[in-house]
């Protein structure tokens, strides 16, 4: 699939350098990172005092306080940690629609988010529902590898949303942020897939990507609509009420997804491929708190 636009244009990268990924949940990271952790640990930033209990590292005793108060007080420092940031891309054939295609859009989004993570030295990993996965990337040097991996993702995976998410959850049980980039168009429903993510107790962002033609169909006449994934055909005569009905259905579908996600502490975002990624990063995701 030709990529009409670099996944991460320099302008966007410059803009993204000022951002960082945020999570409302505090997770234990594996390596020391740039992220403050709930864990008190070794850093230069003072956090608190507490009474010494047996077993504490003597190096952290505040000897000045002991001299003044004759009590053993341990000085606690804030620990800075890294963050697990997963991006899960739906690469089913239905993602090949739109201009730019939904998959391309998802890749751009994944690249942008991954870039933020990488420059903040978070652990960034990108996977597709079909099981393609990038190595765990860290640091600015990972950017080129991230982009290289994204280029290899093609819209030809026929795995269902539920199966893909389950496999993902089985592979990654660490905590962190997971951003699911999908169109949610699975006839089996998205709910069971979401439940897996909830059970993972991750900070979940579901970004539903729809093409402009899906949100506001510009078709007319008597048509035989063929599903690109399962070949299912629907004969329709396009009429104003049908279009209105379609829009109603779409609205209730997205509203349902939003409600489903909201109840389960997941963040849901609906975006169109016609909305520039830059705008989405600068306003929407910022407002929703994924980036800062």
């Amino acid at each position: 699939m030709p990529i009409t636009q670099p996944l991460l244009p320099p302008d966007l990268a410059r803009q993204l350098e000022r951002l960082e990924l945020v999570t409302r949940k505090v997770f234990r990271g594996r390596m020391k990172g740039e992220r403050r952790s709930a864990k008190k640990g070794q850093s230069v930033e003072f956090a608190d005092y507490r009474n010494y209990v047996a077993g504490d590292d003597l190096r952290s005793l505040d000897w000045n306080l002991y001299a003044r108060l004759d009590k053993l007080i341990v000085k606690l420092f804030l620990e800075e940690e890294d963050l697990h940031f997963y991006t899960l891309i739906d690469a089913s054939p239905s993602m090949a629609f739109g201009d730019p295609t939904k998959l391309e859009y998802a890749k751009q989004l994944a690249a942008a988010l991954g870039f933020i993570g990488l420059i903040r030295t978070d652990r960034v990993k990108v996977e597709s529902l079909g099981g393609l996965q990038s190595p765990v990337l860290r640091g600015r040097r990972g950017v080129s590898r991230l982009l290289g991996f994204l280029d290899t993702v093609e819209p030809n995976e026929t795995v269902s949303l539920e199966a893909g998410v389950r496999q993902f959850c089985l592979r990654n049980h660490g905590k962190g942020i997971v951003v699911l980039l999908t169109d949610l168009m699975d006839k089996a429903g998205y709910e069971s897939a979401m439940r897996y993510l909830v059970a993972q107790r991750m900070d979940v962002y579901v970004i539903q990507i729809l093409s402009g033609a899906e949100i506001d169909p510009d078709v007319a006449g008597d048509l035989r609509l063929v599903d690109c994934e399962d070949g299912d055909a629907a004969e329709v005569t396009i009429s104003a009420p049908l279009i209105a009905r379609y829009k109603e259905t779409l609205a209730s579908f997205t509203a349902g997804a939003q409600e489903f996600c909201g109840r389960r502490g997941m963040n849901y975002l609906l975006t169109s491929t016609e909305r520039p990624v830059e705008e989405l990063m600068a306003t929407w995701l910022r407002k929703r708190g994924l980036v800062r």
Partner: peptide
Amino acid sequence: VPLEVPSTYL
């Protein structure tokens, strides 16, 4: 007229 769409779901 046949027309391929991402999904006939909606």
